[in-house]
Nucleic acid binder design. Sequence first.
DNA 1: GTCATAGGATGATGTATATCATCCTATGGA
DNA 2: TCCATAGGATGATATACATCATCCTATGAC
Lengths: 190, 190
Amino acid sequence: MRYRPEHKAEIHRGIVKEASRRVRAEGLYGAAVSTVMRDSGLTHGGFYKHFASKDDLLVESLHDGFAEIVGILARAAEQARPGQAWKAIVKTYLRPEMCDYPERGCPLPALAPELARADPAMRAKFVGELVKYRDRMLPFMPGRRAADKERAFFAIFSTMIGATALSRILPAQTRARVLASARDFLLRSF
Amino acid sequence: MRYRPEHKAEIHRGIVKEASRRVRAEGLYGAAVSTVMRDSGLTHGGFYKHFASKDDLLVESLHDGFAEIVGILARAAEQARPGQAWKAIVKTYLRPEMCDYPERGCPLPALAPELARADPAMRAKFVGELVKYRDRMLPFMPGRRAADKERAFFAIFSTMIGATALSRILPAQTRARVLASARDFLLRSF
DNA sequence: GTCATAGGATGATGTATATCATCCTATGGA
DNA sequence: TCCATAGGATGATATACATCATCCTATGAC
């Protein structure tokens, strides 16, 4: 055997990390195989030693992106006083830096339309990620019954996703107004 | 002269209409020159008799898409009782058909991330469209002062854009729950 | 009817890309 | 030290696309 056994896994993770960043920053088409490999310190040729297809890379990189944001939000929620967890999520999600650095943020404001247009097989995987996302956030949502919490999740995340996606089109000044409007609106509701 | 003078303008409009539909249905990359021309009943070669570049077509087709949705929403608002106009806008925007047929809907849930990633010159034009969009909707928004109306516009449209973008990823049943959650949430607020 | 011309068609060029066959080489076990 | 091999590199192939030079033809002015 040539390398330490963990070597391949590390390289694999590195490629996924790089793709995860690129995909959020530049869209599904922004993560070309050769570019991702070059920025991972490799050449394009070795790619298919790690992934069966480019779609596989996209699925893995989306998984990584969702895991990252869910981790950030869950941590914020767990550090908040009980009952205030959802407010901590809102404040964290709508921070200006979240908006300014899409490569480190939630994949949804960066990619939702492209995910919606993906072919059914891939979309099913994205739906799976969304279900995990929702299930992880649900306990922190306002409302008594499970159905109320789900409605709150949909409403709150719709607003946050839309505000982020919209504000990223706009120049800095207007951008801040959109984020603040959405945040104040959510915090005043429920 | 070969054709009636209006002929060229009609063809031009037809190409823009077709591109406008395609772009909303399949993204900025979905509107390839040859495809759009074929579906307009032409061949790809004549394209540059109508547009200086593909970017020009994109800008025109976005303008068309924004004009369409603004018209639909303004008409709904004007037919509502005064003070209820914003509710008519919410109900119209979040209709299931709006979500199911992106090619006839608002460009924002379909394209916001791609617009945000466009080069500065194009993005500036999209920002111009957004300003017109906002200015047209502002009179219908809830709130007394202009600043309140703008905040309401940002909050309401963020929620609607996010809900539409999110629900388009999801299967029909969940999709309906997202739309309903967002709609009820908005109608209960303000 | 003739013909100049603008709208439209054909086809070429160059670039970007996914995919994969093949080659190369560093590694660790013998 | 030597070698089998898996990880990685090179390069080929095929496709999709934007762009544009050039050609063709229907039209309406004469």
